[in-house]
């Protein structure tokens, strides 16, 4: 096999290994055990606040209210789906056991832009995000290494 091909394959293999490592290597969970209470208001087509940040392990209680029409609160990854009528507050409680960004979405059709009524719960430390950024760096560097050392210079 020509040495250039061997070199390319070697670079690709290394890049792949780093990729897998970055995405799957277990990271120590920084568990807090605080409790957090939030009030979250919904109106067409917005959650207020639009972003909630907690620490992994936190006990989170959210008091939901609606200020115009019936909305719903669906939280990605937590199997929470609570219908909220205007004038009647509802409470949900859960433990933020996974890190990452989880979107909360309106779960009851509330008008034209209903599918885009979205907010974010960020459970820190946001490891998936840091892994993604690391992967981004790895993608760039591995491609540059590949191109610099693996390209046919002629």
């Amino acid at each position: 096999m020509p040495p250039l091909i061997v070199k390319r394959r070697l670079i690709l293999l290394c890049a792949l290994l780093v990729f897998v490592a970055v995405w799957f290597v277990p990271l120590p969970a920084l568990r807090a055990s605080g409790t957090h209470e939030f009030s979250l208001d919904m109106r067409q087509f917005e959650f207020t606040p639009g972003r909630i940040e907690v620490q992994q392990g936190d006990q989170v209680t959210i008091t939901l209210s609606s200020s115009d029409v019936v909305h719903g609160f669906y939280l990605d990854g937590y199997q929470i789906n609570q219908r909220v009528e205007p004038g009647i507050t509802r409470q949900i409680t859960f433990t933020a056991d996974q890190t990452g960004k989880f979107r909360y979405r309106c779960a009851v059709s509330c008008g034209a832009l209903h599918p885009f009524m979205i907010g974010e719960l960020v459970v820190n430390n946001n490891f998936p995000f840091w892994r993604a950024l690391t992967l981004l760096g790895v993608s760039l560097i591995s491609t540059l290494v590949y191109l610099y050392f693996g390209a046919n210079k002629a």
């Binding site: 087509f45 034209a112 885009f116």
Partner: peptide, 14 residues
């Protein structure tokens, strides 16, 4: 605009 968390932007686009 569509997948973000900024309601005012959605309302502008709408």
């Amino acid at each position: 605009v569509l997948l973000g968390r900024w309601g005012w932007l959605k309302n502008w686009a709408n």
